[in-house]
Design a binder for these strands. Structure first.
Lengths: 206, 206, 206, 206
DNA sequence: GATGAATGAGGGTTCATTCAT
DNA sequence: TATGAATGAACCCTCATTCAT
């Protein structure tokens, strides 16, 4: 058991996508209800209405279940970013940032409990990381976007700026979702996140 | 086993501070070497040169060991912030922020491996949280500092701004320590963090 | 799992002798490489390039695979003995014994690894046992041979003598193949085995 | 699971010899009743009136239980041989051999069922092997004995002769105990074994 | 017949925790 | 208080076997 599972093996591609889906759903539900500590492969199988053996047919071990959920979550985040950046309508830097933040926050509304557990117990897994192909793709899209707004940006190293930007988005959205004190309005927090991103990028500019 | 242990009970205060120290050191070393998955109370006891029974004399359960380490780490962070803010010399807002970030990064140099494990496997534990007395203290100190620089700050809600600021510091320092790509110089990252904090606070200002 | 499988059912006779052959070969190879503990029906099927279902088409259960291999091995031993005894050329008692021992040792040269595993993990299976038809046949042939040399033999009960003789051959050849210390030359060991058989039979003679 | 367990770790020496004894007894009884396949650590623990944890306190794994039983059996065999050879009364070669064989057969009367299982499922484990200190000791004692009777022995290489002798004793006693057909009287078989040993040694003599 | 996905009982092992000494 | 032997619930994973296609 390791709290930070590396995706060992992807579920073998099977046309039994349905079974894989069942299993992941069961994993997600159990994770939401009982946390990592309360999750075990037999329970997942039972919940999925499947035998343990079948779980191991598609997932090499317990942690790969979590890893798969993470990958899926990560993919949703990539998709959210990509969807925003793919939009051809001209937008100001701040609008772009706001759209990205908004998309990300919205993406976290689906299965918020699951995301909470995933992020709380296995952080640093849902961020578009440059290590994964999809993550790298997001990285490059954002970099392009920054280049397109070069003149509004104070940071000289856009590569570094992209990395910092992603880290900020990820962790601030994370914080907003995870443990924002009730006394702060969601909209205010959202605006603050955009302020932070925007402020960071412009900082250093003459 | 729960990846995110709540500090159930603080170690009973005993003259045997020495034993408590031994136990925590052992826990830290094992955590560094083997991660949470490889840690168990028997191993901790053996490494500390005491009996399991003694571990349970001072710590109610396994997780409280981790919690204690977290608290200690958190305390170091509080102390770092407090030390900076307690400094009476007049400083600009940016200087204050830079000093805080620097102090925090420096604080992470001690037992970096331990911090990595703690933050990787049990995030959101080292931040001065408003929930703890010490954390609340830090929170208030920062809030005061912001108030002292009210005119340089664009954010209208300083309470919210303080919370965002702490979240940013925490997660950006975290990211810097944990997984900064080798191609980015530490000094550049540090400056970026200050830019981000500074940029955020100023944003929204007319 | 039972270390000493009784051949429950012989492979149903099928035209697909080829498939049976593939399966047994796969079993043998896996046994050689990984021992009984590392053998499982799925692996056998995979190695044989057939489906598990097919394995069960021809073999009622896992152990019957081992049993079949044993039978085959036993048959080779029977054949070796029979071939020697069928030889019409007149030979002295010692020559007959020497020929049998030699034939048996030679028979163990084929697939020595497999034989080692079979004999190490499932002993008492390769001997021409009186319980099997073929074994009984060998038993009777040897008995006849002894009767033909009645005058050179000290043992009064030739039935018993045959049994002892077979046990000796089997176990000494076994020992020679399995764990003869390197310091003993194969030829010397072989001669010793013949000495033992010969010495035994003559013992008790006036 | 491996049918031929190497004694991994000896039970830690503990004054809880009693518990170790209970556990081994339980293992033996279960082995007798259900064979290796029917033995499992939980059953052993239950039968021993002990918790599984305790079994693992003294034995590193399942197989070490079997290994311990084997060692014990082997030790009994060593002891039997040693007792005979330590006897100072002058005896002829044949008498010595007969005494050894007898001692060994007698030693197999204790817990015959257990011995059957041990030898059937894990052969080559009860023989005084030169690899173990005790085995080497037996080996040397027998060698000395043969040297003392040098003039009666036809074999020129007494080292080799000792090895063959041990192999013969071991396997013939084994066969006698394991699967002697009912039609042969025990006394006759015993005499045959002595004949075989005696005959072998004298063979080759002028 | 052939296939191989699905089954699920079963078992070895770990380790947090207790408690008699 | 300190000890550490003892406990036993819990869990991951394997693999012989089945059966619908």
């Amino acid at each position: 058991m390791r709290p930070v599972p590396t995706p060992r093996k992807a579920p073998r591609q099977a046309r039994s996508q349905h079974m894989v889906e069942q299993i992941l759903q069961a994993t997600a539900r159990i994770l939401e209800e009982r946390g990592y500590a309360g999750m075990n492969t037999n329970a997942v199988a039972a919940r999925a209405g499947v035998s343990v053996g079948s779980v191991y047919q598609y997932f090499p071990n317990k942690d790969s279940l979590i890893a798969a959920l993470h990958e899926r979550h990560g993919a949703q985040m990539y998709a959210a970013v990509d969807a925003v950046l793919a939009d051809p309508r001209p937008r100001s830097l701040r609008e772009q940032l706001a759209a990205m933040v908004h998309a990300w926050l919205v993406a976290h509304q689906v299965e918020p409990e699951l995301h909470k557990v995933l992020e709380k117990e296995f952080p640093f897994f849902d961020a578009p990381s440059q290590d994964s192909p999809a993550g790298d793709n997001s990285f490059r899209r954002i970099l392009s976007m920054l280049e397109a707004h070069r003149d509004e940006i104070g940071q000289s190293d856009l590569d570094l700026a992209t990395w910092v930007l992603l880290r900020m988005m990820e962790s601030l959205v994370h914080a907003a979702v995870m443990d924002a004190p009730a006394r702060f309005a969601a909209a205010d927090i959202e605006r603050c996140i955009v302020d932070a991103l925007d402020g960071y990028l412009r900082a250093g500019a003459a």
